[in-house]
Design a protein around this nucleic acid. Sequence first.
DNA 1: GCCCATACTGACATTTATGTGGGTACCCGG
DNA 2: CCGGGTACCCACATAAATGTCAGTATGGGC
Lengths: 117, 117
Amino acid sequence: MKETKKRTFTCGLDAAIAVMGGKWKGLILFALQDGPLRFGEVRRAVPGISERVLILQLREMEATGLLHREVYHQVPPKVEYSLTEFGDSLNAAMAPLGEWGEEHIERIEAIPWNEVG
Amino acid sequence: MKETKKRTFTCGLDAAIAVMGGKWKGLILFALQDGPLRFGEVRRAVPGISERVLILQLREMEATGLLHREVYHQVPPKVEYSLTEFGDSLNAAMAPLGEWGEEHIERIEAIPWNEVG
DNA sequence: GCCCATACTGACATTTATGTGGGTACCCGG
DNA sequence: CCGGGTACCCACATAAATGTCAGTATGGGC
C-alpha cells in the first residue's frame, strides 16, 4: 500500500534544491551534458563517488525524469545514460552556479570546513 | 589540535554545492536578499525549519562568509543577519535555479518522492 | 517577585545520505 | 571449466543532517 505522497514546496528554489538531492546529482547532470555516457564512464566522470551511491543516484534521477536509461542487451552489458529535456533544462539552470563556484573556488577551498559543521 | 583541513573540489559546481550545504542554506540566502532580518524573521521566512537547525545553518553560513551577524545589546535580545557580498553573489547565481523551479514546479510536485529514495 | 519576549544552548532521537565489501549474471574466448 | 568485463544487487556499517524538547539569560513592566 504505497501512497504516492506529493510534496509541496515553499518556492521554486525549494523545489529545485529537492530535485538536486545530495551532493552528487548536480555533478552527474554536469557530466552528462555533452552526451550519453555508459555507467562506467559516468563513474569515472564523477570522481569520489562509490558505485553503489552512483547507482542509487542514477535511479532516483531516472525516477524524477532527469535522465534516460538505455539498456543494450549485450554481453558484457552496456547501459547508457543521457539527459532528458527536463534534465538538460536543470543543467542549464545550474550553469551560473558552476561559474560562481569557479570564480570563488580559492575562497571556498580556503574555508576551514571541519570547523564549520 | 584542530587542523584546518582544506577540501579540494573537482569543479566549480562541486564547490558551489558544498557551500549550499543541505536543503536550507539556499532558502535562507533567498530570504535575506531584500535586506537584513532578525532571527525570528528569518525563521518565519523559512517555513518548516526548526529553531535549532536554523541556528546551526546561520552559524555555518557566517563561518563560510556568506552572511554577517550583527548583535544589538538589548533586552530582549536583537540579532540581525544580512548577506555579505559573497552571499549576495551566490544568491545571484542561484536565481536561475529558482526560476527553473518555478517553471517546473507542477512537474516537480507530481513526482512520487516517497518512491524515489 | 514574576512574567514577558528573544535568541539562543544542550542532550538526545531519528532520518537521510553515504560508504564498504562482498556476490550475481551474462557470453565469449582460451 | 575458467577468467574477463560490465553493470549491477545485497547486507551491513557509518556519517551527516535534521528534528524534538527542555532549559538559560536578560532587564523592563506589572
